[in-house]
């Protein structure tokens, strides 16, 4: 294992030290491992927090700041954070109007946030949760833990965060979160595996000439393992199930998000975006907004995912609203 680390067990804690040093506008609780925006709690605003395993940076800590999250709780690499973290974050960001938990649909995340919400409610704080489950690679939700939360989580944290800045209520934000989730779909693919520092060896084996279509962000297996294809072939392979699942209609407008898994150069991501744009154009689907880059990663995995969010005026306006975080910043 070759990594820029000192000790496998210290990776998350030491990364938080660096995060604090690089972003003095954030406040880091090193004992509980929580990243706060410096001015939390923000008077008159519903608090919005999220959290999840580390290894997906910039998600979630990189999305803490004006226009997105009030706090993020990182867990160990690929492991859900714990209820004591979410409870402390919930209490600190509550300005009296309640707190929204943004939770990705994984068994561990759901259970830990559920315990935290129970504890927070017992302390008199109003909490609602919105769950993202946009990964269409999971086919039969009846017999699985359900679709995984992936790329839509980033778009949801941006749009719901913007709405929270406008002063919307907890109920309105929860409803908006549902709307974003139900209008978004994703699918990913991997060219290589990744190494969890504490494990020291690749999470799964993938031959030099193979790719995994429908991969999860923790290396969960996808729908198919097949010989690797060209970018054009891969684009069709991951876009078709996404478009088909809505299904999107000719004339729909989307935010097209091509995300890198961490080990793929931006050069290739833009090449993929070009392929995706061509395929959307051929289907008569308009691209209203775009996002290209590494925003929800899987350590050093090579590969990408594509997320489409069906846009209306409300979501477009919330997407364009100012944001000031380490991971996304515009309009400020």
């Amino acid at each position: 294992m070759k990594k820029l680390i000192n000790a496998p067990d210290a990776v998350v804690g030491e990364a938080l030290l660096g995060m604090e040093a690089a972003h003095p506008e954030l406040v880091v609780d090193h004992e509980l491992q929580i990243i706060y925006r410096g001015d939390a709690p923000v008077a008159g605003k519903v608090g919005v927090i999220s959290g999840g395993g580390s290894g997906h940076e910039p998600m979630h800590g990189g999305y803490v700041g004006m226009g997105m999250l009030d706090a993020a709780c990182p867990g160990a690499v690929f492991t859900s954070p714990t209820p004591d973290q979410m409870l402390a974050a919930t209490k600190k960001v509550d300005a009296g109007r309640g707190v929204l938990h943004v939770v990705k649909n994984y068994t561990g995340d759901i259970m830990n946030f559920e315990m935290a919400a129970e504890l927070a409610v017992a302390e008199g704080i109003e909490v609602k949760s919105v769950i993202t489950n946009d990964d269409v690679a999971v086919e039969d939700s009846l017999y699985t833990a359900g679709r995984r939360g992936v790329g839509v989580t980033v778009l949801l944290e941006k749009t719901v965060g913007a709405a929270a800045e406008q002063g919307r209520s907890l109920d309105e934000l929860a409803a908006l979160g549902e709307k974003v989730n139900s209008n978004g779909r994703s699918m990913g693919m991997a060219l290589t595996s990744c190494i969890v520092p504490a494990a020291g060896s690749p999470t799964f084996d993938l031959g030099d000439d193979e790719m995994e279509i429908g991969i999860g962000i923790h290396g969960e297996p996808g729908r198919y393992r097949e010989p690797r294809g060209t970018a054009a072939e891969i684009a069709e392979r991951i876009l078709a199930p996404v478009v088909g699942d809505f299904p999107l209609q000719r004339g729909d407008t989307v935010l097209a998000f091509v995300n890198g898994m961490g080990g793929t150069p931006l050069l290739e991501l833009y090449l993929m975006y070009g392929e995706i744009a061509k395929l959307l154009d051929a289907r008569g689907i308009q691209i209203g907004r775009s996002l290209v880059g590494n925003y929800i990663t899987s350590l050093e995995m090579a590969g990408c995912s594509v997320t489409l969010l069906r846009l209306d005026d409300e979501l477009t306006e919330l997407w364009d609203a100012p944001v000031n975080t380490p991971g996304l910043r515009w309009g400020v």
Binding site: G53, G75, S80, P81, T82, D84, M111, N112, M115
Partner: peptide
């Protein structure tokens, strides 16, 4: 609950 994480911690 506060040290394991994942699903195993709450369970």
């Amino acid at each position: 609950v506060s040290s394991v994480g994942g699903a195993a911690g709450p369970l």
